[in-house]
């Protein structure tokens, strides 16, 4: 299992490599959703060269939902990614697959449509399409992951650590609301400091608005220390996402996972897990959701 991480700057790659990262995920904001930072093409190229010089891999995140007017620029962007010899491309919209196939790049693709890869057949289907791998949906519990992995002909990835998103609207919901209240909103959008609190729930959900719409995230980031040794058997790419965090945090987290991966030590894993226990949860690893309930269900 390789450890992938989302650097905040090109120069972070060196320290993160020392900390134990194998793969770096970067992207340009025009072509990607929910990046920790948008890198321009020059920086993506530099990041790729640096990663390769350190014997590491670079994946470009291209998970935008593609509307027709983005197709032409996207084509050029994929040509750029091809030209720098990036090791992977994460996509969430089938248009990226179609364009990449025409360039002969399918074997570099990872499919991450957030919610859609949920059963054993998804990697089988995508294996037939010739891609490198896919991300299992964030809502799939660990027990199901192992069953999906059993018959997967391609690499499997998960977001194993970080703030998971749970909502993406094309609508500019924050500015719409502030405009409705008669308020200036520009100052609120950049800082990524906005959050929602539901009236009956004692949790707060980060909310971000950008050029692709509005994104809402889970209240706590997830961590997988307690389950790491089960995941290593099934998952090829374990992503640590730094959304809402900083470079120092990422270094610490990468070091913690690397230590556990290099020297299997369940006791140590429990100790580390405890350190994260109050500020993090375990996502859906142990929390199956209900298939179907009565319409008048719980709130």
């Amino acid at each position: 299992m390789k450890l992938a991480v989302t650097p905040f700057a090109v120069d972070d790659i060196r320290a993160l490599t020392d900390a134990g990262a194998d793969v770096f995920i970067v992207g340009h904001g025009t072509y990607a959703n929910r990046l920790v930072r948008s890198f321009d093409e020059a920086d993506i190229k530099r990041a790729c060269e640096l990663a390769h010089s350190l014997g590491k891999e670079l994946i470009v995140q291209v998970n935008v939902i593609v509307h027709n007017d983005l197709l032409a620029p996207l084509e050029s962007y994929l040509a750029f990614i091809d030209s720098i010899d990036a090791d992977g491309v994460i996509f969430g919209d089938l248009a990226v697959y179609q364009l990449a196939r025409r360039r002969g790049m399918t074997n570099r693709l990872f499919y991450n449509p957030e919610t859609l890869n949920t059963n054993y057949y998804d990697p089988v289907f995508w294996g037939k399409q010739g891609i490198q791998g896919l991300f299992i949906a964030k809502e799939i519990p660990l027990a199901d992951m192992t069953r999906i992995a059993a018959s997967s002909p391609i690499k499997l990835a998960i977001i194993g650590h970080g703030h998971l998103n749970m909502f993406h609207s094309r609508r500019p919901l924050v500015t719409n609301f502030l405009e409705y209240q008669g308020e200036d909103y520009d100052k609120y959008l950049q800082a990524r400091n906005l959050r929602l609190v539901e009236e009956l729930r004692d949790e707060s959900y980060p909310i971000v608005q950008d050029e692709h719409g509005t994104h809402i995230f889970r209240s706590k980031p997830m961590a997988s220390f307690n389950d790491l040794y089960q995941l290593t058997a099934h998952i090829d790419l374990f992503v640590i996402d730094g959304m809402f965090q900083n470079a120092a945090y990422l270094l610490d987290v990468v070091r913690d996972y690397r230590r556990l991966l290099d020297h299997e030590d369940p006791e140590q894993a429990r100790t580390i897990a405890l350190r994260y226990a109050t500020t993090h949860d375990t996502g859906f690893l142990h929390k199956p959701t209900v298939y179907d309930v009565d319409k008048e269900g719980s709130r």
Binding site: I65, P113, E114, T115, L116, K138, E139, M166, F167, H168, E198, R201, I216, R218, F284, K287, T289, V290, Y291, D292, V293, G297, S298, R299
Partner: peptide
């Protein structure tokens, strides 16, 4: 199809 508010907030898929 990309929304999991309900999964997260009400455990309902």
């Amino acid at each position: 199809g990309r929304c999991t508010l309900s999964n997260n907030m009400a455990d309902r898929d």
